[in-house]
Design a protein around this nucleic acid. Sequence first.
DNA 1: TAGTATTTCTACTGATTTAGTAGGAATACT
DNA 2: AGTATTCCTACTAAATCAGTAGAAATACTA
Lengths: 177, 177
Amino acid sequence: MSLGFACKPRHCLNVGMQISAKVDYGIRALLVLAAAYDGPETRLIKSEEIATGQEIPFKFLEAILTEMRHAGFVISQRGAVGGYRLSRSPKSIALADIMRVLDGPLAAVRGLRPEMVSYKGSAENLADVWLAVRVSLRKVLESMTLDDILTGKYPKEVSGLLNDPDANVSRPMFVTE
Amino acid sequence: MSLGFACKPRHCLNVGMQISAKVDYGIRALLVLAAAYDGPETRLIKSEEIATGQEIPFKFLEAILTEMRHAGFVISQRGAVGGYRLSRSPKSIALADIMRVLDGPLAAVRGLRPEMVSYKGSAENLADVWLAVRVSLRKVLESMTLDDILTGKYPKEVSGLLNDPDANVSRPMFVTE
DNA sequence: TAGTATTTCTACTGATTTAGTAGGAATACT
DNA sequence: AGTATTCCTACTAAATCAGTAGAAATACTA
């Protein structure tokens, strides 16, 4: 009846789905721009303002915003009155789009897309698991837009998930045997 | 109308949810043991047999199996007729359990559990997204057992996901603007 | 036209994680 | 005693993550 230690002893840093700092910062920056969005003539917001308001490292944020511009999510202007604004409505930008731009595909198995991996023997059906994982991530992340997060009004499949009784309880990482 | 490049130019290795080699190998190894499972007196299977059968690097697999033993999923025996067997029924081992042992929590944001992060200003509701992501991962990975994968008979919420018309089509990673 | 403030680009860094490998010690059966 | 296997410790090379530094390009303003 020993207390089996089933996880890394201390802070347990590594993880299945790791939301990176880059994605976290990037989405927060777009949310700030989304809150100011008011059609194509929206005022420009400086990266400095976003960085201090959201406590994001300034130079890192600049790099992220430049990636966002390459992806077409934001429009920028240089110079004394420069800054950034959203290129289109916050209703039209889904979280999955942002995450794919900043971090690549939503799900992969050993670096490969789920439909690219194949297994043999007793593991034959394992690919189905990764496909199901990807679909379930898509259902959440493709359905939620920047506007949904600003307003707090989520698509009902998502609010269904949040109503789950233990949505905000974390599971133990050790196993007793 | 330029073709905006929204992702890393070439092989796009980084990813949101990365199923690591360790988890992939570990689950496959347990599936092999699960297929042989026949109560507490199941025959022992050598790591060499699993490694060649599933094309997993031998020494890496050994390390993974030892972690599995620490977690209580397998029982081992050394010596000439040694090997591994499952410690309990494949019906009682969920994929989420295995993944937490090998890779830590299912989801984290910048290294923190989703319920530990908090945001301010326009990003206030962002934590809900990560909670929803975690719940949706749990719904898939806590409901599927080793036995489900062996038999190909999945809980109906999972088979619902797999029936999604584009379960096995991958989404483009670049954005046209 | 000169000045100023901002974005943009290129390059670099240190820490951590990933995916292993090497070699030997412990152990269980014959 | 011999043999085959698991178990443990240590090590490595490559990639990724989370930034930083500094200068060039650019847009407005006076």
